[in-house]
């Protein structure tokens, strides 16, 4: 695809605008928040559809139960709070009344990863993708920019079943075409290449895009694929790419344990073992700092992707 930065926007705004659009398209879409309407950018939806918006206060467990109940009644509930409070805090509730009960609830998780920034480790969840992908029936989406998060939100409304939708706080490059539909489970080819397969998700897709010209200068023709759907994983796209390139780098703003890299490694191990390097957080909690400082500190930045590619290619 042609990469053209349209503007710099936060993915949470993509969620907010996507929710408003989904609400316009389908009167069954309802929103719930645990005292974070503004942070989740749900204000426009709340204003447009006050009767379909539920302020539940700081009570995330109750919010998930309410959402399951609304889903039983035929609605499509979107719950909105920070990623840590959308996952670890209420894992059992999500497990029993959403995933196991297979309810049409969309768990929308903002401020994920270290790019939450200054609030520090209490709020910087790096484990949520792992928790969510382990739940049967759960679809896990990690879109990369504003446009894609908006499209993913609309796609989640149209998908029948539990969804965990992960996005973030900082303003980042918005480069996916505004009119590109989001197809759950279908990996997005960013650039075709022959020497290495880079599989990235979320904010690190842009970091990987920034690595492409650097790699090209080094004589490495990299393939970059955006795995916006962690589950169900597009196994076919992964294997097709790896058959061509012979080595892999994964990049994500998440713990190495349980993340995208884990999922890709499993596919490789079971089907076509090849060298793999993982750009991810290595079994430590985050800390306070600016998003850029933290990405650098935890080795989630463009130079880290370049280094990982060099290692992977050398191991072929």
């Amino acid at each position: 695809m042609k990469i053209e930065v349209q503007n710099y926007k936060d993915t949470r705004s993509g969620f907010g605008d996507g929710l408003l659009e989904a609400g316009k398209r389908n009167p069954k879409v309802v929103g719930l928040t645990a005292d974070l309407t503004g942070s989740l950018k749900m204000g426009d939806f709340a204003k447009a559809f006050p009767e379909r918006f539920f302020q539940v206060g700081i009570a995330e467990a109750n919010m998930v139960g309410l959402a399951a109940g609304l889903a039983i009644g035929g609605y499509i509930p979107f719950t909105g709070t920070f990623a840590n409070f959308s996952s670890a805090r209420i894992y059992d509730q999500i497990r029993m009344v959403v995933a196991y009960s297979n309810k049409n609830v969309k768990i929308c998780a903002s401020h994920a990863g270290v790019t939450l920034g200054e609030d520090g480790a209490t709020h910087q969840t790096l484990e949520d993708v792992g928790m969510m992908k382990m739940l049967p029936n759960m679809t896990v989406l990690v879109p990369c920019d504003y446009n894609q998060t908006k499209a993913a939100t609309i796609a989640a409304a149209e998908h029948n079943g539990p969804v965990y939708l992960r996005f973030g706080r900082p303003k980042v490059a918005n480069f996916t075409p505004a009119d590109e539909p989001f197809i759950i489970g279908k990996a997005q080819m960013i650039q075709e290449g022959t020497d290495v397969s880079i599989f990235a998700c979320g904010h690190l897709v842009w970091k990987a895009i920034e690595a492409l010209p650097i790699l090209k200068e080094m004589g490495i023709n990299a393939e970059l694929i955006n795995i916006h759907t962690i589950k169900p994983l597009d196994v076919e796209a992964v294997l097709k790419s790896v058959a061509k390139t012979g080595c892999v780098v994964t990049a994500e703003e998440h713990m190495r344990n349980g993340g995208l890299g884990d999922s890709i490694a499993q596919v490789l191990a079971l089907n076509n073992p090849k060298p793999i390097e993982m750009v991810a957080v290595d079994d430590v909690f985050g800390q306070s700092g600016t998003p850029d400082e933290l990405l650098k500190h935890y080795h989630l930045d463009t130079p880290d992707i370049v280094e990982a590619v060099k290692k992977a290619v050398a191991r072929k």
Binding site: V30, E51, R52, F54, A61, N62, M63, V64, G65, L66, A67, A68, G69, L70, A71, I72, G73, G74, Y75, P77, Q93, M96, V97
Partner: peptide
Amino acid sequence: QGLSVAAGVAQAKKLN
């Protein structure tokens, strides 16, 4: 967890 779910169902009934 049941009371939360029941409340959600009750609110769905109101919407309907």
